[in-house]
Design a protein around this nucleic acid. Structure first.
Lengths: 237, 237
DNA sequence: CAGTGGTCTAGACCACCCA
DNA sequence: GGGTGGTCTAGACCACTGT
């Protein structure tokens, strides 16, 4: 079909994007320029851009403009590989910023781990980049008894799970994942430099050790177009 | 912040939605009515509705109007439980329609299963409902050698994996999943009765038996607000 | 300061759904 | 045939980014 003009515009732009050297430096021309070139208004043009954004082909940053989205990152949340490792393994450049740390109670973490709601956690808030694009805002809550002086470590450079294993000898035996699409709230949107309401993917994990003791709970907020979740499984009923 | 009017509108509507008996029969008033009530234009009102749609709180059907979205369905794609079983287990009513069957080559299936691109598969296309809302459009491609007369079965009522196990004694040992957010293409959008470009979640699986022989490949297209992926894992490095 | 996207107005016509 | 959402126009002002 594609009878609507904005859909034909979408098709047209999609072809341009897949072509060679479509837009220099991965940046699209200004909305007003594109609207004029295609003889329509900004409203209609923006409808077309929103489509492509939904498909994960382009994205916008703050009020800076529209950019061609890079390939999605493959990510297996069931593995313990560190962010730095698998980003580099895919030929990309990882970076991590720690935004905040503290030790306080946190109800969702307590509930997910089956602990009393008033018990405290070591909390780390950080932001992670792939090739200088902020793609992930996450919080981790670690049970202090499992890793007492955790917050003295360097959780930017090192894998948290690597630390838990090497410094406290923890085995991460059982894990429970929840994953769903979301609209990024103001906080995450601000941290990632996107408009509030931008489509995201939420990954939540509760992790227990071999003795079935609660170890850690985390919440990840990804830009929806930044990743492809992959899982490899053997044997399961 | 929430300085923009459409964001305040979003907050306001979100409260109404969470309140008791907010909108009778789960249906929202007409856009023009809401726009007038909140003293704004349809364009701005629709921005607010789009936000709530992104959050998974409301959805639209065709040109019929806006509706309150039901709770997400919990779904574990790593398990072999049939759709009918887990939908009913959550107190919901499942339904399945078979849209199409044939036996033909299919390149993506062949590539995912490591087979020659020209080999044929038994293909089933179906649409699945939860409480009479179409939430999933899917295609399955089964290696004919594993299940020769598959297409004579009743793949609407029965679990496909149950069939593969009971009729052909197959053990589904190894599986490889890929999962990412997408914009529903025209075909899936039409099958699910939504606008093209509606946010969706794509789940692709390649499945092998205990002898590591390819068995099946499938592609699922879910409405983004209809499900929450859950995975429970023991032991893994 | 110039240029960008973000937001908003006040209309219009069309395609489709349903009574 | 009346009402719904889907699409579109031609402007406007604001907030922020980058120089």
């Amino acid at each position: 079909m594609s009878d609507a003009y904005y859909l034909r515009l979408t098709d047209h732009l999609r072809e341009l994007l897949s072509g060679p050297e479509a837009f220099e430096e991965g940046r699209l021309p200004a909305e007003r320029t594109l609207a004029e070139r295609f003889r329509t208004t900004r409203v209609t043009l923006r409808q077309a851009l929103a489509q492509l954004e939904g498909e994960g082909l382009i994205h916008r940053s703050n009020r800076r403009g529209w950019f061609v989205s890079p390939a999605r990152l493959d990510y297996d949340p069931t593995r313990d590989a560190g962010f730095n490792d698998y980003v580099r393994a895919q030929g990309r450049r990882p970076r991590t910023e720690v935004l905040h740390t503290d030790t306080r109670p946190h109800r969702p973490a307590a509930e997910a781990l089956g602990l009393p709601v008033d018990c405290s956690f070591h909390h780390i808030r950080r932001r992670r980049f792939v090739d200088d694009r902020a793609v992930l805002a996450e919080s981790l809550w670690v049970v202090p008894a499992r890793a007492p002086d955790l917050l003295q470590g360097d959780f930017a450079a090192n894998s948290l799970w690597g630390e838990l294993r090497s410094r406290w000898g923890l085995t991460l035996a059982h894990r429970s994942l929840r994953l769903y699409s979301e609209a990024l709230a103001e906080r995450e949107a601000a941290e990632l430099g996107v408009a509030p309401g931008t489509a995201g993917l939420s990954v939540r994990r509760a992790i227990f050790d071999a003795q079935r003791r609660p170890v850690e709970y985390d919440e990840e907020h990804w830009l929806h177009d930044a990743l492809c979740i992959t899982v490899e499984l053997e044997n399961k009923a």
